[in-house]
Design a protein around this nucleic acid. Structure first.
Length: 564
RNA sequence: GCCCGGGUAGCUCAGCCUGGAUAGAGCACUAGCCUUCUAAGCUAGGGGUCGCAGGUUCAAAUCCUGUUCCGGGCACCA
């Protein structure tokens, strides 16, 4: 569209003896702040100096040069220093409705992946306790990326890395937690973490337990496995409740042997060094990490010779890359530098590294200000508790309204939207009261607009008829402002979905979903559908809206409700 | 000390990549709207030195530099 405008302008500019390439002209073309100013606009400021005239006057003269607008435009006007282009809205309306009627749930989707496998690792919570909402951010973002990949024709394989070789589990072993249930784990963990912090001898005991596990001591193995299993089961059950599941669970402990091979390979690269305590480390001073760290090294073994986490992580990442070249991982912001270290090490070994999405923490709003959630300190809002609160609230609302609708679906929408509407790199300030709200910029609000739309179609006798009717036969009436806004917003969906895919930033589509729902609600109030003269067209428009919103929410991992 | 994020209305956030018309939403507050398709809604109103200071530009929330505050990280946690 911008190209077409640029073409018109190029011709007009030539008359004024200004010769600019079309691409440059197109780069000036913008979308005006309000619909009254048209659909596209061309600012003339930059021409003022060159033509020794006022920008507003130039706009008028250029407009004259263009002459009568071609068919694709309804009108071309000038407003001050701008030339404003109004596209033919009826054409747009017809086209969008026809596209969606044809593509339905595929509207906006492009088969970029062509069925290619993409390995996505997300969530990967330490198996030590019930997850808090901060951890849930990883899972919710990861799940959205999975949906995004599917939408663009990839075949996602979802991996969950289970950190079963860890100090945390060793601590729980020392605390005798292998007999505990999942619900009891958190308190035990907080208790032992406090004790270990205070006592060096207890910490030694913890590391001894870890060493025993790594060396394959049967007793230790059994205890570690029991705790890991209990935690993993508890965690995945909660995640399943919010509609997030996994294809493969990879256990860190099964990469201990491969880790040794990685160590050997690094040895052969000649970058591996041993410090005076006997630790093996990788010198990274010849990489971008120089200047970013006090000492650019990656420590790979303890002084007792046991491998550290990065070593196994390397082995694991190499394994994932062997599954598919396209790899995505979701990691906390605390792992930014570490991931760069990993990336440089993989590069040294001749491997690509996964695309990474880093997300910031969710802070807890308290009277004293925001503070970080910490499992270790017990300052958390547990995902499960928060979700249960959301479900209870949804049940209450549904009951009050005497409607039907699945409260779990409403709660999932509230939770996921709350997490996804912010850019991953933005810290989320989590306020319990605000998070429980279903008004305004929330998941339930968006679902509600869908349910309302559905209600119209359900009550309509023509809707069924419409679906069989040739879209081309529907008469497009003179469009009201709200109808135009809605059509334009719907038409943006493919672009927004694609941008989300490129940037791996689900907040783009989350914000779009909200704006779309908002415009629909405005349309709903200003335009009666049933029984109106424009009924056929409006029914088709409502149907188009529903598809756009449904596809949009699907990318966020949110299901729509026909009634709520 | 160094590296990476962030600072926009009382609060929570869009907008920044790719500079343009009066800086947008939501919550909270005020006033309206349910005998018409679901009031989880809509309409109207008040509320902003876009952290601060320079610079580039016809034009800066947006780009550049400096500075400040908050978060994350910088050798045996994972």
């Amino acid at each position: 569209m911008k190209d077409a405008i640029a073409k018109l302008l190029k011709k007009a500019l030539k008359q004024k003896k200004v010769d600019l390439p079309e691409e440059e002209i197109a780069s000036f073309v913008e979308i005006p702040p309000s619909a009254e100013l048209g659909d596209y606009a061309f600012p003339c400021f930059f021409l003022a100096e060159r033509l020794h005239d006022e920008a507003a006057q130039i706009a008028i003269e250029l407009r004259e040069e263009i002459g009568s607008p071609p068919e694709m435009f309804e009108d071309i006007q000038t407003k001050g220093p701008y030339i404003n282009f109004f596209i033919n809205r009826n054409n747009l309306a017809r086209q969008i409705i026809a596209d969606i009627a044809k593509e339905k749930d595929g509207f906006g989707s492009v088969n970029l992946g062509k069925g290619k496998k993409v390995v996505i690792e997300h969530t990967s919570i330490n198996p030590n306790a019930s997850p808090h909402v901060g951890r849930a951010r990883n899972a919710v973002i990861g799940d959205s990326i999975v949906n995004l990949m599917k939408f663009f024709g990839f075949k996602p394989e979802i991996h969950y890395y289970v950190n079963d070789v860890s100090k945390q589990i060793a601590m729980l072993v020392v605390a005798g937690a292998e007999r505990l249930s999942f619900d009891e784990m958190l308190n035990k963990y907080i208790e032992i973490a406090k004790k270990v912090e205070k006592s060096k001898t207890l910490e030694k005991k913890v590391f001894l337990e870890l060493q025993k596990f790594e060396n394959g001591d049967k007793e230790a193995l059994k205890k570690f496995e029991k705790i890991t299993k209990t935690c993993l089961k508890g965690q995945t059950e909660i995640l399943k409740k919010i509609g997030i599941s996994y294809d493969v669970f990879d256990f860190e402990s099964s990469y201990i042997d491969e880790a040794r091979d990685v160590l050997k390979k690094l040895q052969s690269k000649g970058k591996l060094k041993k410090d005076k305590n006997g630790r093996l480390y990788l010198d990274q001073s010849d990489t971008q990490l120089k200047g970013m760290m006090k000492s650019p090294v990656l420590v790979l073994t303890r002084s007792d010779g046991t491998g550290l986490y990065p070593l196994r992580d390397l082995a694991y990442t190499i394994y994932k890359i062997s599954l598919s070249k396209k790899n995505i991982i979701v990691l906390g912001e605390d792992q930014k530098l570490y991931f760069l270290q990993l990336k440089e090490t993989l590069k040294l070994l001749g491997f690509d590294s996964p695309e990474v999405i880093h997300y910031s923490f969710i802070l807890l709003n308290t009277k004293k200000g925001a503070k970080k959630m910490s499992t270790r300190k017990g300052d958390v809002v547990l995902l499960e508790d928060f979700f249960d609160d959301l479900v209870a609230k949804a049940k209450k609302e549904i009951k009050a309204r005497k409607t039907k609708g699945n409260p779990e679906t409403v709660a999932i929408a509230a939770l996921k939207y709350k997490i996804l509407k912010n850019s991953p790199n933005k810290i989320i300030n989590f306020d319990a009261n605000e998070a429980l709200s279903f008004d305004g910029d929330t998941g339930p609000y968006i679902l509600y607009s869908y349910a309302r739309a559905n209600s119209i179609l359900k009550k309509s006798k023509k809707a069924k008829l419409n679906s069989k009717l040739q879209i081309s036969k529907i008469e497009i009436p003179d469009l009201s402002d709200k109808e135009i806004e809605l059509i334009k917003k719907i038409s943006q969906f493919p672009r927004v979905a694609y941008d989300t895919f490129i940037t791996l930033n689900p907040s783009l589509i989350a914000n779009y979903s909200y704006q779309l729902a908002q415009i629909f609600n405005e349309f709903y109030h200003s335009c009666q559908v049933l029984g109106s003269h424009e009924e056929s067209f409006r029914l088709a428009l409502v149907d188009s809206f529903m598809h756009a919103l449904k596809n949009s929410l699907a990318l966020l991992g949110i299901e729509t409700l026909e009634e709520m």
